[in-house]
Design a protein around this nucleic acid. Structure first.
Length: 484
DNA sequence: TTTAATT
């Protein structure tokens, strides 16, 4: 790099080598051939801009012309997923001149929409420039009719508002909440003190919420919880198949979600799934071992490599065990989608793995719901019970369960899977709204003996799936609520 | 009722 000549610079420019663009650009505007500077020039107070809402098919060389008209570009980098290389739909842009950044922001921010995007381009100082999170508020319990200006009016007396955004769904309807960013932390704090809980908007179910917005970390945990909700189905079920079954199922789920979800989710999800697998593998490797919520807290679950080696599995859980994965050891094709998320981490030093660690935060919360179920299940059913479809029928008194707060996507089959570990399920039924065909999120499960029913209540009542907890209790006898 | 995205 330090020895680039003008000729090489030209070649690179025309070749469009993205990774060197910034440097090349800085150099190419240095009009002193003899001392062709190796250090690109930019203002000492240059502003790094964040560019959002970029179509994913545009790379640096496509973007450059768009931004060059406001000044010389010092650096332009499209953000990519660090493992998949996937375009994240945003970029960082630094102009040589501070003034160029301001001009670009004024001219472009929210001013036009790039082809294929449904929101206008974002051009504003990157978070790293201002560290805005301690002055950004989340405002909840707004009336869905309130617009940005309404919210501004409500908040303007506490300080100068840099940004005010109503959160909207894809249809443009307000979600009843907003972000408000002040120029200082003190202003934000003042708004909280005065406004939080101060009034109830017409139509809102409780009083106005004004608090600091979630940090990145909190957002990650929130996502993990949502993911756990989506994937909730695999956990109890996976126990029947051992680690390999769980692994296979995680893969299915992950592949499914990746195929329908947004690209950016792939990596954390794979990490989450992998972390889940490690967790599962550890538990399966230690049947009956005490598993307390805190045991997963101080040490990342599943990094206890030796236990996993005992799992009889055709694919083993090679990429997941925490054992040093042999370099280039011919991973089975089925594992392909995980390799991105797993292999970059040196398994010997799990502490270095940030996305995994973040995933653990979610896993730990999720796992906290498991100890009872795991202990009981693994002891009660060392052998997987056969899955035999049964006709709808009710069991004897004391064998029938009522289950509430099921995930929306659970059907009869998933319900049965979830309770099979506790005994012989003779029927499972999720109630469905006959107008919409949507689950009503409750159902019934019948066992052939009261012991299984009690075991299921013990383990599954209060079982957390996503943000909800299952309610599992004995079904009320038919005549219980009919006194006559 | 926590954003689409911040190396």
């Amino acid at each position: 790099m330090a020895t680039l000549t003008n000729g090489q610079v030209d070649a690179v420019v025309h070749g469009g080598a993205a990774s060197t663009n910034g440097l090349v650009n800085g150099i190419s505007h240095t009009h002193s051939p003899a001392s062709c500077a190796t250090i690109p020039m930019k203002d000492h107070d240059a502003i790094k801009l964040f560019i959002g809402q970029i179509p994913r098919n545009l790379d640096e060389k496509d973007l450059r012309p768009l931004f060059e008209e406001f000044g010389k570009i010092y650096e332009l980098t499209v953000l990519k997923d660090r493992f998949t290389g996937m375009h994240k739909g945003c970029a960082f842009l630094t102009y040589c001149a501070r003034e160029s950044a301001l001009k670009a922001q004024t001219a472009l921010h929210e001013q036009k929409t790039l082809p294929g995007m449904n929101r206008p381009i974002q051009v504003k100082p990157a978070d790293s420039e201002s560290r805005g999170e301690d002055r950004k508020l989340f405002v909840g319990m707004l009336n869905k009719q309130q617009c940005e200006d309404d919210v501004r009016r409500l908040f303007e007396s506490f300080g100068s508002i840099e940004e005010c955004t109503i959160l909207r769904g894809p249809d443009g309807n307000s979600k009843g909440c907003a972000f408000v960013k002040y120029s200082t932390h003190a202003e934000a704090q003042a708004a909280i003190s005065t406004l939080h809980g101060s009034q109830t908007m017409p139509g809102a179910s409780s009083s106005l919420v004004v608090k600091f917005a979630d940090t990145d970390k909190e957002r990650t945990i929130r996502r993990m919880q949502q993911m756990a909700g989506q994937m909730g189905i695999f956990n109890p079920m996976a126990l029947q198949f051992g680690a390999y079954g769980a692994y296979a199922q995680v893969q299915q789920q992950a592949a499914l979600m990746a195929s329908v979800g947004q690209g950016g989710y792939l990596s954390p999800m794979a990490a989450f799934a992998a972390a889940q697998m490690q967790h599962m593998a550890t538990i399966n490797g230690l049947p009956g071992a005490p598993m307390t919520p805190t045991s997963g807290g101080s040490t990342p679950p599943g990094i206890t490599a030796p236990t996993v080696t005992s799992i009889p599995s055709p694919i083993s859980v090679n990429g997941f065990t925490g054992l040093p994965p042999p370099q280039a050891n011919g991973q089975p094709p089925a594992e392909a989608m995980f390799t991105n998320g797993i292999h970059p981490y040196p398994a010997q030093s799990p502490t270095a793995a940030d996305p995994l660690q973040q995933a653990y935060a979610g896993v730990q919360q999720y796992a906290a719901a498991f100890p009872a179920a795991y202990g009981q299940i693994s002891q009660a059913f060392p052998q997987p019970p056969p899955i035999i479809p049964q006709q709808q029928r009710e069991g004897p008194e004391g064998c029938n369960l009522f289950i509430y707060h099921l995930p929306q996507e659970f059907g009869d089959g998933e319900l049965m899977q979830m309770f099979l570990p506790f005994g012989n399920v003779i029927s499972s039924k999720v109630f469905v709204d006959r107008a919409t065909n949507q689950s009503k999120c409750f159902g019934f499960v019948s066992f052939d003996n009261p012991g299984s029913a009690q075991a299921a209540i013990q383990s599954m009542n209060g079982f957390q799936i996503g943000m909800k907890r299952l309610k599992v209790q004995l079904k009320r006898p038919k005549d219980a609520n009919r006194p006559y």
